[in-house]
Amino acid sequence: MLEIKDLHATVGDKEILRGITLSVEPGSVHAVMGPNGSGKSTLAQVLAGHPAYQVTGGTVTYDGEDLLAMDPEVRAQKGIFLAFQYPVEIPGVSNAYFLRAAYNEIRKAHGDEEMDPMSFADLMDEKMKLVEMDDSMLTRSVNMGFSGGEKKRNEILQMAVLEPRLAILDETDSGLDIDALRIVANGVNTLKRPTNAVIVVTHYQRLLNYIVPDFVHVLAGGRIVRSGGKELALELEARGYDWLLEGAVA
């Protein structure tokens, strides 16, 4: 469903992605690992269409369409969801209002009717349970004054509500305690379908005990320097990244 070919991207005049090739099939879970600054978030942001990043080469197709030609909201409407490494605060806008607007916008894009507030409240009840979140989170402003863990859980709540086809989780595990980690993983696993795929960006193999990847890729210096199965993550845990980095950074 997602085909990334020789993708290059810059921010300012700095080249960060230097030829990424990756193929994601429906039903699969891919883990992207790698040291700090290797370009993991950049890859996630480029796939979501953040305007600060310029694609300077390569192609990305999503269900056969040119993903890079789509506006970010169109990508979202077509089922791409990014759980942000640093979720953004929106003062004065309640979480519930924001989520319902997003949910209805995506429905409208699919030619469906907007959901009325009552039915939406029921839907929220169900999803809140999934991520073990308290009702008070719905009336609070989006991410305002949320702890690091609450922000991450809020991302997973949004994912659970929007039910994306392709979810990209950017370090959703960092800063979470074991309980929160289990909740996040549970949220992701509940959404697994043969038609959906997940890209899990992470620093640590810890999360991968809960979300078991089909493929693990190591990103370094803006390139994928190694791909393998889930055992690669364990190897990284034991040996670190250094053994893979020689020659990777030009």
Partner: peptide
Amino acid sequence: FYLKQRGLSAEQAVSMIVSGF
């Protein structure tokens, strides 16, 4: 960008941020 990533148009995003303000 955060709001657009959730499916809202630029106009809706601005209007939501400003209304919140």
